[in-house]
Design a binder for these strands. Structure first.
Lengths: 341, 341
DNA sequence: GAATTTCTGATTTACGTACATCAAATTTGG
DNA sequence: CCAAATTTGATGTACGTAAATCAGAAATTC
């Protein structure tokens, strides 16, 4: 049997009430007594029974998810996963509220964060917009004792407790190696389609991609980035235009969302020439394109894993517990035609 | 607030004791009354508070993990993950026992399974050896009401509740496509190193691999399988021999464990010619080989995920709850040099 | 040394469920 | 219709922790 609070009391020679005061950091315990109790806790290896504690507290975890109001498949998927988590709330004792903020708008995000500092939820998960103001706002929250995790897009240099997302530099490098190897030593140009260079994850992917191409595939030239603002029509137009203008393009790396337009442009060109294409985010569209051969590989981050991981980590932090690091690492999924889920 | 047993009692117009009898399937309730209570449960959407129930029951989940006594890195890793789960036992209310059985020995496995049928643990996880006797033994357990999940290697046609492992046919096909694309249309032979064709997962990987090569890369010839019995020295000898004999080998697919010997053989040959290599299972050795360029890609299943998933599923089944399917799908990880964890 | 203040102990209730016991009500069989 | 059997209700205890109250002990202040 695992030790209980009663065992601590007996071991430390104090009463249950005192143990409770120490455990829950309530005032009214002398330093010496506190030390004695803490020693006993360590000695007998007591671990609080979180289930019983939550039952007694009638505790729920009021969490807030801050997501950008972007209209693309990936963010829709993320929202769906948050809603799924909300549906599980009664069982998981969570009470999740979603707040939408305009995309790429640091001020709006900071306003929401500061507001939450007042409300003091049990934890906050946010898709970070990378800016110094946001970092400072997050740091204020952390320092005031609220657990904060970033999802999908991180905030380096900040004090956030955890990042539930992929390493985007590694993602870019992986895309580069796949494209380079698939092209098998051919010489030519690579078109890169991004949403916006204002987003940190897109910048990082590009950085990783360009650096690996430069290092290991000198015969390939990375063309200036096409910014499609994650808009299908805009992406379609820009990509079609680029393909028409430049004969040398033999590969495409699409590192953002809004792949519908890209796929359309590629299919228009299909008769002329076959390109090697690596894209991000598995959606209905990219999946179909992978299966029909328009796309050669898809890199993906599983939004469901990210949301569930964020919640687990927030809970653990709220309870002052540790997390299983390996379990919380978000992997970069690589999908070929053959290993689609 | 989520509804409690009291709410059911009130809604159904019966006493708490009766609700309890219905919920826990105790005798002494008339059919009509039982129906009335069950209707109320559905109506108000009652879900048992598992935490409180376990607390009241003082329940622990006695689980048994049956693992083969194989001496290779992957099984060592699996064992380590099971031990890690045992270490978490007090917190997770599990009580996990590990039973080692001789590898590839259906009779031994059946004996253990039948024995466990007597002991009636709350759940069983096993690395299945694929044979009709084992399937029947598993079916007996399932039919007697014990939750059973297979790990790493499945048992098709059986009634096991869940399989915590990768789709090995898809893994083989993925390996084939990677190898084929990396070779960029070259013509030549592919050597395949397996542990033993008696193991189901190895057979399936080979099947997937060979079929995709045949379908899409007609210029590649898959040589007869080399069975290295997952033994480094034996693998080294056989691979070195094959490389010496056949000039045409331009790629290698290693679908089993025991990659140390393969890597040594490849390095011996490194000066002569550069092969394209895809291997299974990320270990210290394969990781180093991937980084130094001896191996081009590693396919991996995360043993930690498999063990944790198996435990979650067993718990859910033991409590009669459903599982989040997407969360329990074990992915095939593809590692290149750049996205190593 | 008395009056405060600060600490500690003892005890109780609660959380939602499980489980046991005993009494009361209802149904069933003859 | 009565006795026996079955079903239902009422009640209490337990699980491990949280949280509150009140009384008593110890330390501190003047």
């Amino acid at each position: 049997m695992r030790p209980t609070v009663h065992d601590i009391a007996a071991a430390a020679g104090v009463s249950l009430a005192t143990v409770d005061r120490v455990l829950n950091q309530r005032p009214g315990v002398r330093g010496v007594t506190r030390d004695k109790v803490e020693a006993a806790i360590r000695e007998i290896g007591y671990v609080r029974d979180v289930a019983a504690a939550n039952l007694a507290k009638g505790r729920t975890y009021p969490f807030v998810f801050i997501v950008p109001a972007s209209d693309n498949s990936f963010m829709h998927g993320l929202n769906a996963e948050v809603r799924a988590a909300v549906a599980r709330s009664p069982v998981e004792r969570t009470d999740i509220r979603t707040v939408e903020v305009p995309a790429f708008d640091p001020e709006a995000l900071v306003a929401v964060l500061d507001q939450l500092g007042e409300e003091r939820p049990a934890g906050i998960a946010l898709v970070a917009t990378d800016s110094p103001e946001v970092r400072e706002a997050v740091d204020r929250l952390v320092q005031s004792g609220i657990p904060v995790v970033t999802v999908v897009s991180d905030l380096t240099g900040s004090l956030r407790h955890h990042y539930a997302g992929v390493d985007n530099i590694a993602a870019g490098r992986t895309a580069a190696r796949l494209l380079g190897r698939f092209l098998g030593g051919a010489k030519g140009d690579i078109a890169v389609l991004a949403g916006s260079m204002l987003v940190r994850d897109h910048r990082e992917r590009l950085e990783g991609f360009a650096s690996l191409i430069a290092e290991e595939f000198p015969d390939l030239t990375v063309l200036p980035v096409i910014e499609g603002r994650d808009d299908p029509d805009m992406a379609h137009m820009l990509v079609a235009d680029a393909l028409a203008k430049r004969d040398g393009i033999i590969g495409v790396y699409s590192l953002g969302a809004g792949n519908r337009g890209l796929i359309r442009a590629l299919k228009d060109k299909a008769a002329d020439r076959r390109l090697t294409v690596v894209a991000h985010e598995l959606t209905a569209h990219t999946r179909a394109a992978l299966l029909d051969g328009t796309i050669d590989a898809i890199l993906n981050q599983d939004a469901g894993h990210e949301v569930r991981s964020a919640i687990r980590v927030l809970k653990a932090k709220a309870d002052g517990l540790s997390v299983i690091d390996a379990q919380e690492r978000i992997r970069l999924d690589i999908f070929l035609k053959d290993n689609l889920p």
